[in-house]
Design a protein around this nucleic acid. Sequence first.
DNA 1: GTCCATGCAAACGATTTGCATGCGT
DNA 2: ACGCATGCAAATCGTTTGCATGGAC
Lengths: 136, 136
Amino acid sequence: MNNYHELLKSSGLKATIQRLGILEELQKSGHCSIDDIYTTLKEKYPSISLATVYKNIQTLVEKRVIIEVPISGAKSKYELKKQDHIHLICQVCNSVEDESVEVVTQENLMLLAQKDSFILSRSQINLYGVCRNCQG
Amino acid sequence: MNNYHELLKSSGLKATIQRLGILEELQKSGHCSIDDIYTTLKEKYPSISLATVYKNIQTLVEKRVIIEVPISGAKSKYELKKQDHIHLICQVCNSVEDESVEVVTQENLMLLAQKDSFILSRSQINLYGVCRNCQG
DNA sequence: GTCCATGCAAACGATTTGCATGCGT
DNA sequence: ACGCATGCAAATCGTTTGCATGGAC
């Protein structure tokens, strides 16, 4: 069982219903856009405001509790922080699936796509960090 | 020498000054945001409109002449279509550098970062394509 | 000469902000 | 009880659209 209450507290944040709802929805659905989250939470907590979702997503990303998954040609999605993995992003329905590959080679990616019946069009590998000029 | 005139024609597009300017700027700078491009071209062609840059970027992405590089926490950048490579994205200045790695392993990525004096924080591997449900 | 592309201004939609109130601690 | 978080409405910003004019072919 997940203790998101504790996770929020240890990140220096109050454990509000809205925040717990966001984290539970991300756990349930895996990858969600802001609107996905708002629509789902609106059913459980009709008084929730879209601005609250925006503010919380921003806060949770800053605190590194969740991760932004920017998507070419669509709005960003968000996921709970977890160990490294690969995203299969559908350019038609914008769904995102997680997969793991030990060693990333052109061939392994093709096999991975094949396994999931995913028609692979292109891959993008991004490393985030701090460049030489911005250090110190 | 690059013949962007020909590239545009073969993509079914008219070779206008504005489009040639966008491609040349991408070649010169590597990775640019919409605003980067607009600011630079505005100096050479003061009459250029921001709407024209938006329209052309959209058209060039659709025709697969350029590629969108969506960036976590910042606006997308764009690059000329070229062979597969890795992006080193600085979370401070948002610069993007290209690198190539034969085989992607945790260790190789760390060596790559080390070589460039890049402090690596996290990596994101995205495969774009069409999922099983959206085929046929 | 034709048709697509440009530039402008207006429209639109997504995201942020300010502030009074509510709730977690 | 204190102070952060929420919800609302207004403001802001990025992006798109419509249309008259210009330019590539």
